[in-house]
Structures are given as C-alpha cells and as structure tokens.
Design a protein around this nucleic acid. Sequence first.
RNA 1: CGGGGCGUAGCUCAGCUUGGUAGAGCGCACGGUUCGGGUCCGUGAGGCCGGAGGUUCAAAUCCUCUCGCCCCGACCA
Length: 572
Amino acid sequence: MTRWSGYYLHTTREVPSDAEVVSHQLMARAGMIKKLAAGIYTYLPFGWRSIAKLSAIVRREMDAAGAVELVMPSIQPAELWQESGRWQRYGKELLRMKDRHDREFCYGPTHEEVITDFVRRDVKSYRQLPFNLYQIQTKFRDEIRPRFGLMRGREFLMKDAYSFSATEESLDRVYEAMRNAYCRIFEACGLAYTVVEADTGTIGGSSSHEFMVTAATGESAVVHCPACGYGANQEKAERGEWTRPPAEPPAALEKVATPGKKTIEEVASFLALPKEKLVKTLVYNTEQGLVVALVRGDREINPVKLQNALSGVDHLELASEERIERELGLPTGFVGPVGLDEGVRILADRSVAGLDDFACGANEADHHLIHVHWQRDVRLAEFADLVLVVEGDPCPRCGSPLGLSRGIEVGHIFKLGTKYSEAMKCEFTDEAGGNRPMIMGCYGLGIGRTVAAAIEQGHDADGIVWPLPLAPFSVLVVGLSPNDPVAMAAAESLVAELEGRGVDVLFDDRDERPGVKFKDADLIGLPVRAVVGGKSFAAGQAELSLRHDRERISVPLAEALPKLLELIDRLR
RNA sequence: CGGGGCGUAGCUCAGCUUGGUAGAGCGCACGGUUCGGGUCCGUGAGGCCGGAGGUUCAAAUCCUCUCGCCCCGACCA
C-alpha cells in the first residue's frame, strides 16, 4: 500500500523561476522532476511512475509489431563515429570525452553507429533479414539551449528502434508496422496527435514522418489539410499551384529612385504597389559562396527547402550586410535579379514565376526597378518550391485551404536506406550470391517529452489532469480525517480492496488539513479521487469524483469499490 | 556564438543606484488555535550575499576576473 506519508512526494506552491511552460511548472510543482543542471533532471518517484507507464505501453506495442528489445552502451568510441563521418559533422551537440588512456568517446545522442557495427559482424545472409531492434535508453545531446523541462532536455529518455532489411519492399513493410505501432501507442496514451510528413534533416534518408501531439505551446508548426488529410511539418510542407495572374502588357522596364527604402513594406508603400507585385531578394551565405533566393514580396523563404534545393550545401545562413556590400558592391535592400553578378547563383520560388510585371531592387543604391518582366529582363533563374507555407495556402494534394497549428514532436520515423550501412560496410549476401548493403530504418520516440506533452494537453488552473494510461496512480484515496481512527481504517480498507482488484492507488494518509489535501489532489491530478472522512463519512458515505470534471458523487461506503471500478472502466 | 539579464535562507524574491551589525513571504521546528478547498497567533532554527582577486578604515553593495544559471536570436532528433 502506497501511503503518501511514507512516499517521496513533495508538492510546492511556488513555481521554479526557470519554468516557462506549463508542463515544466506542473511537473516541478507536483514533485515529478528535479533539475540537477541545465537540461538535466532527476525523475522523482512520482514522475518516474508516469515514465514507467508510458514505457510499458511502448514495449507492448513495439513487441506486438515484431521489434525486439535490447540495450546498447551509452558511452561510444570515437572510431565508430569517425567511420560514419559524423564525428566531424555532428558538431558541438555531441558530448565528447576521453578516458584515462586519452582514448576518445562520446555519450551517445543516437545509436546508428553502434547498432550498425555489431549487426555487420553478426548478420551475413538475406536469410537473417529483416529484423528490428529497439531500446529505451538515456541519450545526451548537448543542446545549444535546453529549455521547457523534459520537453527539450540535454539528457533525455528515448525509445529508438533500428530495422535492417534486404529489400526496399521489406523496409516499407517494417516502416508501415512502426507507423501503425506509433499510432497505437499515442492512442493508448489518450493523446490527441497528428502524423505529418517531415524533413529528414541531418539523419538523412528518403522518407520520414513525425508524430506531433497537438498543443498550442508546441515548438513545431504543422500544416494540415482538413479536406484530404494531408499533413506536414511546416519545414517540409508543400503547397498547390500558384494561380497565375492575368498577363499584363509588359510596359517598359523603368528604374526609379527609392532613397532609403529597403524593406518590402517601405518600398511597397513608396511605390504604391501591393506587396504581391514586388519580388523579395534574399542573399544567403553558403560554403559554396553567395546564393540569391527570390520570393514574392508578401511571402517568406523556407530555409529548409532552400537548402534542400541547393543539393550539397551544408551551411546556409542569411548573408551579413558587410558581406553583401563587399561581394556585390551594394547595400542591402537594393539587390535584385536583373543584371546581377553572373557568378551568383539565383533560385526563385514558384510564387514569382507567374509575375509578368513586378518591382525589385535595381542592384544600385537607392533605386528599384519597376515593370520587370521575366523573359525579357531577367537572366535565367532556377525555379523551385522555396516558399514557407502559411495558413490558407492551397493543399498540394487536393487544393483545399491548408490549416496551420502547433504541436510537440514526440516521435519521428525515418527510412534511412543505405546511408549508414554503406558508410560502415554493413552488408549481406543476397540470393544471387552478391553482397549488398542492408536497407535500414530508424524510429525514435521521446519518452519524457511524451509525458510532458500529455501535461501540456491535460491541465487546468489547479494542476495536472492526467489521462488514465499515463497517470502515476489511477486513484487517489484521500483520508480526510487523519485524527479519526475509524475513518482512517475505512479509508485504508478501501485502498486495500482497490489494490486487491489490481488498481494502483495512492493513499493520502498525511496529517494535513482538508484544504491542503484537496489542493494537492488537484495539483497531482490523478484521474479518480475518493474522499473518505469528514462530513460524508459521518453520513456513512464516500465521495467520489473524476479529476477532469470534478463532479462529486456520494455513495454509501459499501458501494465505493464497485463504483470506483466502474469509473476507472469508463476512463479507459 | 551574438544580444539582454540573474546568482542574497530549502523555495520565490527585496536590499546594491548613494559602502557602515543581513531582510520579507512561503516552507521547516516548537506551543497554542483551527479542522471540507493551501486556518490564525506566537516563538525559533536557518545565509562565507556563487567563487577569487582588488579599491577602502569598512564591501551583498564599487572595480577586475571566473564559474553557474535564465531569457531573446541563430541552431536542432
């Protein structure tokens, strides 16, 4: 029997000064986590129970989907990372260290290298494929800016799975099984979530989906189509065709003075043109030199799309004013595609392709061009989809207006292909006797982040409102009259009965006033509450309620057990 | 890494500008009171004012360095 008096659960009224988001505040106040250092937390007993419940759900669904659990080392030798090339590329996020012999290691932020290394030594034949291995383990990524408690820690718990297949079709099947398993996991947790197409980022690979728990405080923006179900991370989101405006008779190209007018707003109002009739020219700095990106004046460039369009470019950032002055010889705000230095690569978003008569920088200080016409005036630019999709843009699949919402990324699955197996020579012999690299997939799920997301989604002004599957305990039995031995005995026997029926119960037996107990009950947010003591006990009753609606019902003590079981059942 | 800010009691913070015996609320301990939504009253314990150096008769306060932390931005499975 878990008695609060003997448990380790200390709630606080004060919010830690560094807790910004509600999940962090409530986890700290409810005694679930304690910060040790920036982005590094102790999981206190009450918090760990929730983590354990999620882990059990994850294991159940992973096992059901044919994955097999193992645990890999968290400390990994540098050689493996040098072999994959990521020792150099991963950057400062990789926590590196040396042992007493000066050998280099890192604390694993992910495990592609380790798993690929032992699989290549164990597995030689197509007959041994496919398989899928997973672990639930502590990772470390030395984030530039850890924040939001467990939502973006440096040390964090993650479930990661890696699949190895002989063929693309096999990978597709495993990927689909994982995708379904993830859906079942988040459904089993009672969370509202969406699956969206995602950019593959530094992990690489061909196809990728993110699982987003919807929350207004989410760090990621998600585009979705209410009509056809299309969903994508805003970084990745595409949009339907631009409607081409009616062709206007191209008037003669004209240079106009726009003294000091640099921004789109300034130029548009100075020239009395709508922003859609301007072309915005952005200069980016890459390791391959300057690149110019064009987009319609009222829109933004999506840097992820731009980087993908510039295949082979690793670093992309907006060029500084000094650099633009030095290399292009003109101040920012007046750069344009007409007559630009031939050495500079120009990429144009499709939003500008349909413009027949637009204004843009003249490549001369304090001047812009008007009546610009693509074919007539601009040297050939490459067109690509570069625009940041916004709410109301047409869906790329069905053309309906897209919606934009925010979410917390809790899962991310990738088709890796042969990126790591080729680099690390993880090969198998196929039926024809030839050697081929294994085809891999990897499937991550943030454990701590999912619990945090559940709180972001489930809380009110008084505290956490747990979904039953993730609640540290299902039921809180409040012994309201700690000084009344009869009432406390009744409460205790109710707890024992519940436990006898397999229900996990926290028994608040503390010598505290009712007000304290009620406030704490709301704060820690267990789904079902039973109050035994005080006025209702004097009338021979127990008072039952659910955290999410707090509607109280009084039942005779003898009926408390069946009624509680019924309430729990209703929450499932 | 760029910009801004903070380190004073277990927690949240005042005091610093203008140097002179270390403060409040919450929490904790004890006594009383109260007992269905964080009771009320009293008493008390608790601090090398992040660390080092400097200025000064005197430093939480001024200066330098350092460590840690937070916020915004860039970045990011």
